[in-house]
Write a protein that binds this DNA or RNA. Sequence first.
DNA 1: CTGTTAGCGCTTTCAT
DNA 2: ATGAAAGCGCTAACAG
Lengths: 363, 363
Amino acid sequence: MNKRVTIKDLAQEVGLSLGAVSQALNPRESTIKVREETIQRVQAAARRMGYRPHAGASSIRSKHFQNIGYFMASTGIPDYEPVGYSIGLHDAALEHNFRVTLIRLPSGKFKNAISRVFREAHLDAMVMVNASILFSEYKDILQTSDFPVIYLNDKQDNNSVYTDDILGAKRATEHLIQRGHRSIYFVKINNAPVVDLHYSIADRIQGYTEAMHTAKLKPVIKAYTYPQQEGPLLDELFGRDKPEAILAYCDADAAQLLKFAYHQGLHAPEDIAIMGYNDDIFSRHCWVTLSTMHIPTYDMAQAAFRMVLAQIDENSNGPTDSCVFVPELIVRASTEREKETEKEKERAKGSELPLDPLQVAIL
Amino acid sequence: MNKRVTIKDLAQEVGLSLGAVSQALNPRESTIKVREETIQRVQAAARRMGYRPHAGASSIRSKHFQNIGYFMASTGIPDYEPVGYSIGLHDAALEHNFRVTLIRLPSGKFKNAISRVFREAHLDAMVMVNASILFSEYKDILQTSDFPVIYLNDKQDNNSVYTDDILGAKRATEHLIQRGHRSIYFVKINNAPVVDLHYSIADRIQGYTEAMHTAKLKPVIKAYTYPQQEGPLLDELFGRDKPEAILAYCDADAAQLLKFAYHQGLHAPEDIAIMGYNDDIFSRHCWVTLSTMHIPTYDMAQAAFRMVLAQIDENSNGPTDSCVFVPELIVRASTEREKETEKEKERAKGSELPLDPLQVAIL
DNA sequence: CTGTTAGCGCTTTCAT
DNA sequence: ATGAAAGCGCTAACAG
């Protein structure tokens, strides 16, 4: 480990004072102004000598860390995560010279540990995804900690970024109605009763219901626990009195329903139309590609970062208004009369041959 | 923003010196020893007053940041990421009171920006996933920077953690042979020629080839660019002279092959056996669940963290030996004669009803 | 426009 | 076992 090159060394090299060098390196509001020429000279020297600012040292005096937390509030090891959130946040942070620290609920044997991330001061703000499932223990910490928290994919009056799922579900249902379907179910798998854990569950049901009412159709909402309720599920959804179409709560549910249908000898979209929600990996890679509602995760994360800046920059002017995105209808094979529309094939051509082959190839 | 509670305030409160309090808060090697009773008293006061150590301040004198970088070297916005790596690393870091900073290749308009993450000193080490695709620009930075880098999912002599894909592919092939298949192809989709970008491509081909030779069977290796080579693909894999079984390079490829087969009127495993590799989301959620080779991503990340500690703790004793994991054969529906084995159904029951419903439900 | 100086919050060395 | 004091690398306030 070589001796660190400090700002002092730099000052000596260029024959300036510490303060001047500090300003030249990182020009900001100050009583001390440096000439453009000086800035160039100092920065050239910095490069030449391999100077790297010490993030910790600057955070002491400057009172900010240039660091935000990205808190993914999911427990255990989920099958997948919407990667658009983390990439969007990272890109936005990078653009503004912020770092992002990864935060998770601890799993494994340290399940109950409170992360150092919370004990120590090193964050200017935090962006939290899926806050709904947080332990109250964490909620307390967040309340008492003095940094701003922005909620991503969570519906709150302030400081949150989310999608209008009432509108989204309405549009999805309208799509199914326009396709000529009358008997349309809303189906959720996994939770015995439809519990109001995440806002999207209640909102999607509401949007679906409103659209059905507007069209003078009878809404039917079903929730099944799998595999315990496999019997009723197969009977009610794919038996004699089966619906013409199903709007699933999410793509994962839709994919599973598609699988059930297949084993019952029913094919989408000919025998039954099945629609997902989220436009995630399931809808795109499903054996029959799924019509779905696109959620702009990347843009939402960028918006979340903008809210972070708003909270940090102008100090002490209270909460920021929440930011609402509108999901976009994506029509694919699972609700189209023709198995794959031409448009869809075009899209596939673009997306299935990525610039970087490893993107898909590597685990 | 309330006034920060500092170690000074604490010292005043408990009537001790700064140094003593520092030791009591965080006992370590030092000439100054504190009584157990003192430690308790100080820590109680710290809790009472809401003291939170300033990560930046401690990093100056202590010369370490308690922070490691998690560098996911994928470009653009991939469809998914193996989440086991980041969770495993996070858990291990948490256990040792380390933070983890998220690092990515910048996408979007700041594509060519070098992240602040590299310019500033704030990391003790870095764990890098899929290093193979790095820009040389980054490679230079890594070479000259003075912190250790551990390579995850990359095969190197030192400082890397990876799986033995020669052995893995061999076992996968043997599984297919034991099922009675003679004509078995190795298939990769996406790259026109099989380019040696990631070690796993060459190694899986090697393992497959060796297993075939041992069984006195003729290895056939195919690579297709989709959709450009859709014609030859369909013809050679699912036409008149189709193989009895296919070992795909990865689960995503296998899932796609399954889809092609279906549209050609062929079903797995009756008409053709198709096997994946990686045991990722594709293999588990595919319409016909895929037999595959499990890669212990969580454990690999934990191992990577242990290597990080080895590199940091004992200073100046050179590189650490690489750590090799062995993939495990997972038999599912796509190669079994019976559509879904009983064992598989059992497994599904466990995994499809997670403790946390949001794990699956929420985007 | 530039130099000087006083810290920031913490750790570590040295003295007691 | 504890206190005193020096200093880590940097920024900000003040003086010129």
